[in-house]
Simulated scan of single mutants.
Amino acid sequence: MIDIPEKQIRAVHDENTIRVYQAYSHAIADTALEEGRFVSPPFKMDRMTWIKPSFLWMMYRAGWGFKDAGQSRILAIDITRDGFAWALEHSCPSHPDPSMSKEDWARLKAASPVRIQWDPERDLHLQPLAHRSIQIGVHGDAVRRYVDDWIVRITDVTSLAKTIFSHVETGDLAKAEALLPAERPYVADAPKWTASQGTP
């Protein structure tokens, strides 16, 4: 059995890019695939957008693409490693440390265009595991950088998600697992990304 640290970034990555996932409506997904970037409108630049390196956490969040119309299309977005590193370096936790004052928390949030949250990783049945998966929320200047500078390619993986789900439904977990993206540990040079933990 592999001993996985409680907090570890795991992703599909190579020497140039790291893959994150998002789920969107048909309108946002279609324009993003056509242009190779998110287009506003229909994408909203003024809202925080959460990117997730974990495929199975994305499946949990979007219900394999069946949860609602706004999450019916699953997109794999390959972004530059430099962009990912910038996001980690300019982040703060999604929730304040209990020892922080309201004023200190407000200053930290104002200075940090990225939020970090750790939530339980999921198995093929979307049940929580003991280790956690990172979620990265970008807003303000970070959204502009994400859309304009970091994205290398966008791929529609909705069909893959639904094929894996069909194998899970029929109980063929071996086939389902064989189709999962090959996520492996990602080493980041930003120590503060370990500082935040999401809800159980």
Rank of each mutant, 00 (worst) to 15 (best):
residue 3 D to M: 12
residue 5 P to V: 12
residue 9 I to F: 09
residue 9 I to K: 14
residue 11 A to H: 00
residue 13 H to F: 10
residue 15 E to D: 15
residue 18 I to D: 04
residue 19 R to Q: 04
residue 20 V to A: 08
residue 20 V to T: 11
residue 23 A to Q: 13
residue 28 I to S: 03
residue 29 A to Q: 03
residue 30 D to L: 09
residue 30 D to Y: 01
residue 31 T to G: 09
residue 38 F to D: 07
residue 43 F to H: 03
residue 44 K to P: 04
residue 45 M to L: 14
residue 48 M to K: 11
residue 50 W to R: 13
residue 51 I to C: 10
residue 52 K to M: 02
residue 55 F to W: 05
residue 58 M to L: 11
residue 58 M to Q: 12
residue 60 Y to K: 13
residue 61 R to I: 02
residue 67 K to M: 06
residue 67 K to R: 14
residue 70 G to F: 06
residue 72 S to F: 05
residue 73 R to K: 11
residue 73 R to W: 06
residue 74 I to P: 01
residue 76 A to Y: 05
residue 80 T to N: 01
residue 81 R to Y: 00
residue 81 R to L: 03
residue 81 R to H: 01
residue 82 D to G: 05
residue 85 A to D: 12
residue 89 E to I: 08
residue 89 E to D: 14
residue 90 H to E: 06
residue 91 S to W: 06
residue 91 S to I: 02
residue 92 C to W: 06
residue 92 C to P: 03
residue 95 H to G: 00
residue 96 P to C: 07
residue 97 D to F: 12
residue 103 E to T: 11
residue 104 D to G: 09
residue 104 D to P: 07
residue 106 A to I: 05
residue 110 A to I: 10
residue 111 A to T: 09
residue 112 S to D: 06
residue 112 S to N: 12
residue 113 P to G: 01
residue 116 I to L: 15
residue 117 Q to V: 06
residue 119 D to V: 08
residue 120 P to R: 04
residue 122 R to E: 00
residue 124 L to T: 00
residue 125 H to G: 12
residue 125 H to K: 15
residue 128 P to M: 02
residue 131 H to P: 01
residue 135 Q to P: 04
residue 135 Q to V: 00
residue 136 I to L: 10
residue 136 I to D: 02
residue 138 V to M: 15
residue 139 H to A: 14
residue 139 H to E: 13
residue 141 D to V: 15
residue 142 A to E: 03
residue 143 V to Q: 04
residue 150 W to L: 06
residue 157 V to W: 07
residue 158 T to A: 11
residue 159 S to P: 00
residue 159 S to C: 02
residue 163 T to Y: 07
residue 164 I to E: 12
residue 164 I to Q: 12
residue 164 I to T: 07
residue 165 F to M: 15
residue 165 F to H: 15
residue 167 H to E: 12
residue 170 T to F: 05
residue 177 E to W: 11
residue 178 A to C: 07
residue 179 L to T: 01
residue 180 L to I: 03
residue 181 P to K: 08
residue 184 R to E: 11
residue 184 R to I: 10
residue 186 Y to C: 13
residue 189 D to S: 14
residue 191 P to Q: 08
residue 191 P to D: 05
residue 195 A to K: 07
residue 198 G to V: 05
residue 199 T to E: 10
residue 200 P to I: 08
